[in-house]
Amino acid sequence: MGAEVVTVSTDTQYVHLAWQRHEKELANVKYPMGADPTGNLSRMFGVYDDSSGLALRGTFIINPSGILMNSEINFYNMGRNIDELMRKFKANLYLAKKKDEGCPSKWQEEGDQTLKPSPEMVGRVHEALNE
């Protein structure tokens, strides 16, 4: 997909290795597992919880120029929707090519309807989405 997915926790790379070897659910993991034992990277992204020393469930998409394009942070007790992450990533790739368009919430993949902000659309988003 042209992206490197890196999972990150405050565990060390050695613990990542042990977990990946031990947990059968992780047998097919293909992502590098990032180690942030100091919490520095987690702090930089605002997901470090000082009271526990752990990182919250944060997802960040950074473009090839190093610009932060999306952020999502969930508390400990809520998992993330991978389909939504992939939707956001695909929308980023599309919008990098089509800079004058916008992907509405129901956009799923290239070919789906987009919006082009214009004076004519103000107050008429409903019509634009249903034309």
């Binding site: 752990l54 944060g58 960040f60 190093g66």
Partner: peptide
């Protein structure tokens, strides 16, 4: 990542 021209998705989670 920037030199390789690649997107980066960081996926933080609490613990192994």
């Amino acid at each position: 990542q920037k030199k390789a021209g690649k997107w980066t998705i960081l996926f933080f989670y609490p613990a192994d």
